[in-house]
Simulated scan of single mutants.
Amino acid sequence: MPTYQWRKSSYSADAGNCVNIAANSDVGIRLRESDDPAVVLDTTAASFGALIRAAKAGLLPVNGE
């Protein structure tokens, strides 16, 4: 099993509840929640970039709205 260099956002607190990200040469991007690191989401760099752009633009629903 490959070893990934997981990184957490500089916006994350030290108390946990962080989203970690790692580059993956097979699929592009891997995401995981620090509270449950065994569950990993794989996505492409393009899809992840679109998510980040939408979040920065305020286009994502907040608290289920």
Rank of each mutant, 00 (worst) to 15 (best):
D26N: 12
D26F: 12
V62P: 01
S10D: 00
G16K: 02
A54C: 12
Q5I: 13
Y11M: 13
T3P: 05
N20G: 10
V27T: 15
A46D: 12
G64E: 09
T44F: 01
P37G: 06
A57T: 03
V40Y: 03
D35V: 10
R30Y: 08
V19F: 06
S12F: 01
G64T: 03
D42A: 15
V40Q: 04
L41T: 12
S10W: 04
K56R: 08
Y4Q: 07
A45C: 08
L51V: 09
D14M: 14
A38P: 01
L31Q: 05
R32D: 13
L59Q: 09
A45G: 11
D14K: 14
S10G: 06
A50L: 11
V27D: 03
P2E: 11
V40I: 14
R53I: 11
S34W: 01
E33S: 10
V27N: 05
P61W: 00
D26E: 13
K56L: 08
S12H: 04
T3C: 10
A55W: 01
I52L: 15
A55D: 01
S12E: 01
D42Y: 03
A22K: 00
I21T: 13
P61K: 01
C18P: 01
S12W: 01
L41R: 04
S9R: 06
N24W: 02
Y4S: 14
V62I: 12
W6G: 11
R53V: 13
R30H: 15
Q5T: 15
A50D: 07
R32W: 01
Y4M: 12
Y11K: 05
K56A: 10
I52G: 13
L60T: 00
E33V: 04
E65M: 15
D36P: 07
V40E: 09
Q5A: 14
P2N: 08
R32T: 02
V40M: 08
R53P: 11
V40A: 09
R30Q: 12
N63L: 05
N63Y: 08
I29V: 15
L51Q: 12
T44P: 07
S34I: 02
S12C: 10
V27G: 09
L41Y: 04
R53H: 09
C18Q: 09
R53W: 06
G58L: 00
S10C: 02
I52D: 06
I52N: 13
M1G: 13
G16M: 00
S34G: 06
D35Q: 06
A38Y: 00
S9P: 14
A46K: 12
T44K: 09
R53G: 10
F48L: 02
L31T: 00
I21R: 10
I29R: 12
T44V: 02
R30K: 15
A15H: 08
S25K: 10
W6D: 03
A45E: 11
T44Q: 03
G49I: 00
A50Y: 07
M1Y: 02
W6Y: 07
